[in-house]
Computed example of a mutant assay.
Amino acid sequence: MAHATSPNTHVSADAPQKTPGLHLDVAHAKASRPASRSGPAITCDDVKVFYKQHLAVRDVNLSFARNEVSALIGPSGCGKSTVLRSLNRMNDLIPGARVEGMVRFEGTDIYGEGVDATEVRRRIGMVFQKPNPFPKSIYENIAYGPRVTKMQVDNMDDLVEEALRKAAIWDEVKGKLKESALALSGGQQQRLCIARAIATKPQVILMDEPCSALDPIATLKIEDLMEELTKEFTIIIVTHNMQQAARVSQRTAFFTAEADEHGDRTGRLVEYDETAKMFSNPNDQRTEDYISGRFG
């Protein structure tokens, strides 16, 4: 079983770089922040995810610190996106999917009896790999979530502006709120989707490879935005981009996949630690091999 390193562990960002072939500027990796006295934002205890009879990912033990960016990395098929979707019950929408173990948010098991999955998703928002604005106006995209979840909103205009400002796109769209969101560029659409997630007042934002469909300039804007958003939100991101994980995250979890005698692959958590430590001196050889490009 893989064990997550406590968020209280301190590792210097100036640790010597050991990983052969690695060309990441780990000296400038985001510094981890002191753990909140109120505990982690989300904790996974012995989490397993099944798709019907197939065990997709097992033995996940993680604690995500508040107001930080945590990155999930690993080769395709290792379960990192599956784990991400388990954090706000998005896997409930997949027929045959089930989660064992415990995922705690604010101390409550989100899979516990009587827990409202819709409320879980309101408080733990999600941004997907490809921008997916609704075929509605920019304004209606932002207002949609609060309306559907029946949030008490004093002034919807103010809420829409606040969300767009927090997503760093207000100045670009304030004069065309009634126009279709589909007319925006790819990078603008993704920031709009982040604003749409923010509008429901979540505490955590999950991002599943949010920059994979974007050009480098749009990617940089999203990465800068993540740093700003951690002042208010906890962010957990899946990425295949090692440079991105090093740039934006305070902590990184590495997953890999293991095949059984029948060739069925099951993902598992290998290592979780401060990003500077993971990219300069990981504890597990598999982590070093992946980060240095030997496989994956």
Rank of each mutant, 00 (worst) to 15 (best):
L206H: 14
C78H: 13
L269V: 07
L220V: 09
A195V: 15
F279E: 03
T275N: 13
K166C: 06
S81M: 09
I142T: 00
N281Y: 04
Y51K: 03
G107R: 04
T230Y: 00
Y272H: 11
G267T: 09
A15M: 10
K201G: 01
H10F: 12
L184N: 05
M1A: 09
G112E: 14
A31P: 11
Y139W: 12
Q152K: 15
R294Q: 13
V69S: 05
I142A: 03
T230K: 01
P40C: 13
A218P: 02
S212Y: 05
Q188H: 08
K174I: 00
I42R: 12
Y290T: 00
G114Q: 12
Q243P: 07
Q285I: 04
K48V: 00
Q188I: 03
G187E: 04
D224R: 14
F295V: 01
E223K: 11
C193H: 11
A259M: 04
I138E: 08
A117P: 15
A245S: 12
I124T: 08
I222K: 09
D289Y: 10
I291A: 10
A245E: 04
E161P: 07
P135E: 12
N281S: 12
S180P: 01
P282I: 10
Y144L: 15
P34H: 08
A246Y: 01
D25Q: 15
I236D: 01
V49G: 09
K166D: 15
R122I: 06
F134Y: 09
E113N: 14
R104W: 00
G296H: 03
V47I: 10
N88C: 11
Q285T: 03
D215T: 05
F233K: 03
I110H: 13
E106D: 15
R165E: 00
L62M: 10
G145F: 10
Q17E: 04
A253N: 02
N281R: 15
A276Y: 09
C193F: 06
S185G: 03
I94K: 11
G74C: 06
V120A: 10
K277F: 06
M207L: 14
V47R: 06
C193I: 06
T219V: 12
R98E: 02
Y111H: 08
G263C: 07
A276I: 08
L214W: 09
T5P: 02
T275P: 08
D284T: 01
A2P: 11
M1N: 11
A117E: 10
D264Y: 02
